[in-house]
Simulated scan of single mutants.
Amino acid sequence: MSRKLLILTVWAVSMLGAGCGGGSSPSKSNPTMASSGQNVVAISVNGGPTNNYVNGVFVTLTVCVPGSSSCQSIPNVLVDTGSSGLRLLSSALTISLKQQNGPGGHPVAECVPFLSGFTWGPVETADIQIAGERASAVPIQVLSDTAFPVPSGCSSTGLQSMDSLSTLGANGLLGVGLFAQDCGPACASPVGNPGLYYECPSSGCQPITEAMTQQVQNPVAMFPSDNNGVMIELPAVSSGQPSITGSLVFGIGTQSNNALNGATVYAVNSSGNFTTTFKGKSYPGSFVDSGSNGYFFLNSNTTSITACGSPNGFYCPSNTQNLSAENEGTNGNSGTVNFSVANADTLFSTNTDFVFGDLGGPGQSDFDWGLPFFYGRNVFTAIEGKSTPAGIGPYWAY
Results as ranks from 00 to 15, higher is better:
296 F>E: 00
237 V>R: 09
314 F>H: 07
244 I>S: 05
196 L>V: 03
221 A>F: 10
218 N>A: 07
208 I>P: 00
328 E>M: 13
259 A>M: 13
220 V>M: 05
213 T>Y: 15
195 G>M: 09
282 S>W: 09
258 N>V: 08
244 I>G: 02
305 I>E: 00
306 T>S: 14
320 T>D: 12
271 S>D: 13
316 C>T: 02
265 V>M: 08
300 S>F: 01
239 S>F: 13
249 V>S: 01
221 A>T: 04
222 M>W: 01
267 A>S: 13
243 S>E: 10
200 C>P: 00
290 S>I: 05
307 A>W: 01
266 Y>Q: 06
211 A>T: 12
249 V>C: 03
279 K>H: 13
300 S>M: 05
192 G>S: 10
210 E>P: 00
234 L>T: 07
305 I>N: 02
259 A>N: 14
304 S>F: 08
306 T>K: 15
320 T>L: 04
305 I>T: 08
253 G>S: 08
291 G>S: 13
312 N>L: 10
242 P>C: 04
229 G>R: 03
285 G>E: 08
260 L>P: 00
215 Q>C: 03
261 N>D: 14
215 Q>W: 04
196 L>N: 10
257 N>C: 12
278 F>L: 09
203 S>V: 11
254 T>M: 09
222 M>Q: 14
300 S>E: 13
266 Y>M: 10
281 K>L: 12
213 T>M: 11
232 I>V: 12
255 Q>S: 14
309 G>Q: 09
303 T>E: 06
317 P>H: 11
237 V>T: 09
225 S>I: 09
209 T>F: 06
232 I>Q: 02
319 N>T: 15
207 P>K: 13
282 S>P: 08
235 P>K: 09
256 S>T: 15
325 A>N: 14
273 N>Q: 15
264 T>C: 11
322 N>Q: 14
312 N>A: 10
216 V>P: 00
313 G>L: 04
197 Y>D: 05
307 A>H: 02
207 P>R: 02
228 N>W: 02
238 S>G: 13
324 S>I: 06
230 V>C: 04
301 N>P: 01
311 P>F: 04
202 S>Y: 03
226 D>Y: 15
234 L>P: 06
293 N>P: 03
297 F>H: 00
303 T>Y: 07
316 C>H: 02
271 S>K: 13
228 N>G: 09
289 D>A: 01
285 G>L: 06
309 G>P: 00
296 F>L: 10
302 T>C: 11
273 N>H: 15
192 G>W: 09
277 T>D: 12
289 D>L: 07
307 A>N: 14
241 Q>W: 04
231 M>Y: 01
220 V>H: 04
236 A>D: 06
290 S>A: 15
324 S>R: 15
279 K>I: 07
289 D>M: 05
267 A>W: 01
250 F>M: 07
299 N>C: 07
262 G>I: 01
271 S>E: 13
264 T>Y: 01
251 G>K: 03
204 G>M: 04
249 V>G: 01
247 S>D: 14
249 V>R: 01
324 S>F: 12
264 T>W: 00
250 F>V: 08
269 N>Y: 06
200 C>H: 03
247 S>T: 07
